[in-house]
Write a protein that binds this DNA or RNA. Structure first.
Lengths: 353, 353
DNA sequence: GGGGGCCGCTTGATCGATCCAATGACACCA
DNA sequence: TGGTGTCATTGGATCGATCAAGCGGCCCCC
């Protein structure tokens, strides 16, 4: 049984938001005594209208609670004002937490630029499945690609289809890639952390990073070696490359303490740094007093763990701003050649150093 | 200057994905020698076609790489297959981390139901601004509302406009609300945690929770009192209500240790539990040996901190499934009366207990 | 044998916006 | 006064899908 306030079929202008069907451009036009196109102009190119006409139209828009129908607009303009972003499987880790911080910033920045963020999840078997669907159905205007790690085919695939996208992460492999990207200088981050420790008087500073096939890991490692060599300090025997888990960090730090007696650790992630803290605790050593520790990512964990973990913080808000700026450029002009933006991280100093 | 592979204006069927304009329904129809509607049916109601026609059409769809234009479909069907979800300002905290886990699950579950998730950010001043825009422009089919805390006007506002939505969080206040919701039984969670401690032989179990005006906090607290009273144990003098910060948890636990000598703590959040761990560390007490601690949310922190924080884990994957199921019901049938689903959390036992 | 119903498919209209070409109004200047 | 140019505004066409109605062919049954 239809409810009494819906059965008329007509629109209830007195309470616009409650009406069954939202008002259309034509409704506004009729009420304001102008044509549809004029209303459209009032919304999209207000300068084209005479001031008095404009106010009259805007008044009607306001009174009716009109908002352009997204689908109709999208159909006509061939754009959706949506930015697609794939989120990986819910593996809980610090990398994920970083991504979430980025997503927040991206959503906020996109809003200011008139875009919304559409999230989709990928099939782990077919990494381009989600992209393909959205692209062919013209559901999104562009993509933000976040997982540009070693051998990831998405960037190349999108590039081949001329799909507009910006990567968060530099194109490590493909030299011929011409897409835009934004990245954080990981090496600069670890260099910052290492220098911070050097300035505190440490000389034997160890590195715990990821396996050699991780380009990101090797990049971060290079910041440590650079800072050490700069001061003429040796790095041999002070480095370890392991999996990105707390247990690995724990083991690696125990080994290093025994073999090389470092007074400080710089780690490729907060997860590994947590492992170091565990080892210190096992041995009755105090982080920040006896041995200093620096992590990477400035995760939630770094902030709440005792005595606070000094960590490299990526400027994700800036990354989001740059990504959106690049996207806007991409969508406004024909994509000639991509731009690359490298941002510098900062160091959040806490009790562990 | 137009590129050589784009200047013809026609479609390059040999390499469908590279063509400037994607193929349309009409293109498929022409190639398959049928009408547009038949192609439409092949996509949406395959049963209506004769098997041989169907295969012929599908073959053409495949060959052209056709995928229905989202905008056109949305315009005609008045639906977008998008679910809107607002994410709050990027206050970094465990609540946020929980939300991120939920978002992941929601995206995944939505995909299986044929929906995508559209994220938008709210203006903190006007909590319904984002909702209003999306609703009036018919950009989303429904909303998932996550912040249904005390005095939150969104649910009531959406209800009034007859906007389809499902809340993650029960309607604490409004008794007259008729919307669907899914929630996790927080009281059952703390009860679980408290019983776990009781079974371990603890008798004096303290509570550290949030201020009294938090309905969620009071709910979680009730689980603790219920479990205690069930065994005939007193709770007076064993509870503290503070802000949700590590520092507050630290202070509150120090006070309680001095005043009531509890042997265990149950906390309304992992953040507070971390504060307890700090206090124990300050006093040379070992979590899990001398004093047991149970947190809430099973955050990243709980998993990596030493010696591991026992914590109540919300079944967010299930929540997402129920939310999407409720949404599907809502969009399929006329919204008669909302349903409420209450899910039970589990306990992730770790070294702290 | 003729009417009714179903099947498989087609045709024209439609959703609500913007694009495009054209029109009316108006001012200016010769 | 009439021509010209500018500006605000108009009406029709269009984007690409689905809806609604209808059509011919076939079978069935009275």
């Amino acid at each position: 049984m239809p409810r009494s306030d819906e059965h008329e079929g007509g629109r209830v202008y007195a309470r616009p938001a409650l009406s069954a069907t939202p008002p259309t451009l034509a409704d506004v036009a009729e009420r304001a005594g102008v044509s549809r196109q004029t209303v459209s102009n009032a919304v999209n190119n207000p300068d084209l209208l005479r001031p008095d006409t404009l106010t009259r139209v805007l008044e009607s828009i306001d009174a009716l609670g009109y908002s352009p129908n997204r689908a109709a607009r999208n159909l006509r303009t061939r754009s959706s004002n949506l930015i697609g972003m794939r989120i990986g499987a819910a593996q809980e880790g610090t990398a994920n937490a970083t991504m979430d911080r980025f997503v927040h910033s991206l959503v906020e920045t996109s809003r200011e630029a008139g875009y919304h963020v559409l999230l989709f999840s990928g099939d782990s078997r077919d990494p381009v499945a989600g992209y393909d669907d959205l692209l062919r159905s013209t559901a999104v205007d562009a993509f933000v690609v976040t997982d540009t790690y070693l051998g990831n085919p998405q960037a190349a695939w999108l590039e081949e289809r001329r799909a507009p996208f910006v990567a968060f992460g530099r194109p490590w492999e493909s030299l011929g890639s011409r897409h835009s990207w934004v990245d954080v200088d990981g090496a600069a981050g670890t260099e910052l952390g290492t220098r911070h420790l050097l300035d505190k008087g440490h000389h034997r500073i160890a590195w715990i990073g990821w396996r050699k096939d991780s380009r990101i890991g090797e990049d971060r490692r290079s910041g440590w070696t650079r800072a050490m060599h700069e001061r003429g300090l040796p790095t041999t025997g002070l480095a370890s490359r392991v999996e990105d888990t707390v247990a690995s960090g724990r083991e690696a730090s125990a080994h290093l303490l025994d073999s090389a007696q470092p007074s400080a650790f710089v780690c490729a992630s907060d997860t590994l740094a947590m492992g170091v803290l565990h080892t210190l605790r096992d041995r009755g050593l105090r982080a920040g007093e006896h041995v200093a520790v620096v992590g990477f990512d400035d995760s939630q964990v770094a902030q709440v763990v005792s005595p606070g973990l000094t960590s490299v913080r990526q400027p994700l808000e800036e990354v989001a701003v740059e990504v959106v700026a690049a996207l806007e450029g991409l969508l406004a002009h024909p994509p000639v050649r991509g731009t690359g933006v490298m941002l510098a991280p900062t160091l959040a100093v806490r009790g562990s150093s």
